[in-house]
């Protein structure tokens, strides 16, 4: 435990805070709508359409620091991203798509676009 960037106790506090905050985001709907309580129509609709919208948002979130103006113009990200899409459409295998895309990206930024 010698080379931690922050103290041992602070590290534990951070983990507990992240755990509690994460749990809160998961528990809120079940606290608001316990078994048997009627769910409003608009909320029901949001439950259906929000997951794809939020994943779309998270994809953008992952690419937020990519600059298309400066070299390498986001090429490693877009090449690796496109490979993940095509490979997944072809094989529909989560592990294969994620693994190949990640290794390819690492090779691209460490050796190709240095």
């Amino acid at each position: 435990m010698t080379n931690l960037p922050v103290s041992f106790w602070r590290s534990l506090i951070i983990i507990v805070l992240v755990a509690l905050t994460t749990l809160a985001t998961r528990a809120i709907p079940f606290i608001l709508f316990p078994n048997g309580k009627k769910i409003p129509k608009a909320v029901e609709y949001l439950g259906k359409v929000l997951p794809p919208a939020v994943i779309g948002m998270l994809v953008v979130y992952c690419f937020k620091s990519v600059s298309i103006i400066e070299s390498p113009f986001g090429l490693p990200e877009f090449i690796a991203g496109a490979v993940v899409v095509l490979l997944h459409l072809w094989k529909r295998n989560n592990l294969l798509s994620i693994g190949t895309g990640t290794v390819l990206y690492m090779v691209l930024i460490q050796y190709v676009f240095v």
């Binding site: 359409v49 997951p51 919208a53 779309g56 993940v84 990206y105």
Partner: peptide
């Protein structure tokens, strides 16, 4: 990039279901 790849995979999976496309586009 594993995280990015994970989200892309989930995005593709959801995209394959037509009813998800409108909200997915709105999100992006």
């Amino acid at each position: 990039f594993a995280m990015t790849a994970l989200f892309i995979v989930i995005f593709v999976e959801q995209w394959l279901e037509k009813k998800n496309r409108f909200p997915a586009i709105v999100g992006v």
